[in-house]
Amino acid sequence: MHIRSALFNNTIKPIFFVLLLLPTLLLIKGISFDTLGANSPEYVFHSLGEWALRILLLTLLLSPLRRALRWPQLLQLRRMFGLFTFYYASLHSLFYLWFEQSLDWLAIYSDIWDRPFITAGVLAFLCIFPLAITSTKNMMRQMGRRWKLLHLLVYPAVIFSVIHFWWLVKADITEPLVYAGLMAVLFAERAWGKLERR
C-alpha cells in the first residue's frame, strides 16, 4: 500500500493529529460544560493517564500494522504518536505534582518511594522522557545506532505503564487486563517476527 506523499503529509497526518488531540478537546469541553461528573479533577487526572497508555499501545501497534498492510508510510506516524504519548503523560504527571500533591516535594518524594504503583508510573515516565527529547531527525542522525538502542526503552515504558494502572485499580481489573492483553499480543508478534527472520 502506498499513498502519494503529498496526500499523506497534507491529509492523513493532520487527520491523525486532530484525532490524537481529540481527548484533550473533549476534556476541555467536559470541564466547560461540567459534564465530567461530580469529581471532575479526578476524572481529568485519570483520563490523561489512560490516554497516555492507550496512545503508547497504539504507537507500538504501528509497526505490525505497517508489516501487515505492507504500508511503509505508517512509520512516519510513529513520532507523532510517541510525542502525543509524552504529551498526555506529562500533563498527567503535572496534574499529580500540582493538584494531587500541591507541589509538596517531601510528600512527593516519599510517595514515590513508598508506593510501588507510583514508582512504576515514575519509571514509565523516565523511560519515555529521553525518547521524546531524542525524537528529532537531527538527533536520530547524530546518534545513529545508539538511537535505535535507546528507543528500545519503549518496551519497559509500556510494561511499567500497565503495572502502574493495574496496581491502582481497586477491584475491577477488566480495563488493565485489556491493556495487558494487548501488550502481550504486541510483544508476541515482535518475538514471532524475530524468530521468523532468523
Partner: peptide, 19 residues
Amino acid sequence: VPHQRWSQAKERRVGEFTK
C-alpha cells in the same frame, strides 16, 4: 495508616480542586 497501595493522608472534597 496508609492503604497498602496509596496514601490516606489527604482527600479531595468533591467539588474542590486541591486536596
